[in-house]
Simulated scan of single mutants.
Amino acid sequence: MNNQIAATKAAASKKSMEDLTVVLCALTVVGVGATAATPFWPEAWGRAPSIGVVVLAASLTVFGVLHTLYWWRSLDEAAKEAHKWAWWWGGNLGFFVGGAAVVIAAFSGVNLLPAAVPHTDAALIALGVAAAFAAQAVGYGIAWCAWWIARR
Results as ranks from 00 to 15, higher is better:
G99E: 07
T35C: 00
V54Q: 07
W72E: 01
V23G: 01
D76M: 00
P39K: 06
L24P: 13
N3D: 15
R73L: 12
V54W: 08
V117T: 11
N3T: 11
A116W: 07
A6Q: 14
L69N: 06
A12R: 14
A122K: 15
A122Q: 12
A82Q: 15
A115V: 04
E43L: 07
A100P: 03
G64I: 03
G98E: 11
K15A: 15
L27T: 15
L56G: 04
A78W: 01
W71F: 14
G98Q: 05
S74W: 03
A137P: 13
R152N: 08
V53S: 07
W45M: 12
A122C: 01
A78H: 06
V62E: 12
P39F: 09
V117C: 02
A37R: 14
L66P: 09
A122T: 08
L124W: 05
V110H: 07
A137V: 04
A123R: 06
W148C: 01
D121M: 10
V55Q: 02
A79V: 00
I5A: 09
A130Q: 02
S16W: 01
G109S: 10
A78E: 06
R47A: 13
V32W: 08
A6N: 13
G99A: 03
S74N: 10
I142F: 03
A48Y: 06
G94R: 05
A57T: 12
A12G: 08
W147K: 02
G33P: 09
W85Y: 03
Y70H: 13
V97M: 12
H119S: 13
A143I: 09
G31W: 03
L20S: 08
D76K: 00
C145E: 07
W88M: 14
W88T: 14
T35H: 07
G99D: 05
I125E: 13
P49F: 08
A44G: 06
F96L: 15
R152W: 08
P114L: 01
V129Q: 04
K84E: 00
P114S: 03
G141M: 06
V23Y: 10
W45H: 12
T21C: 04
P114R: 05
A137R: 03
A48V: 02
G33D: 07
L60I: 06
V23E: 02
A11D: 02
E81K: 12
A123D: 07
A122G: 01
E77Y: 14
E43S: 15
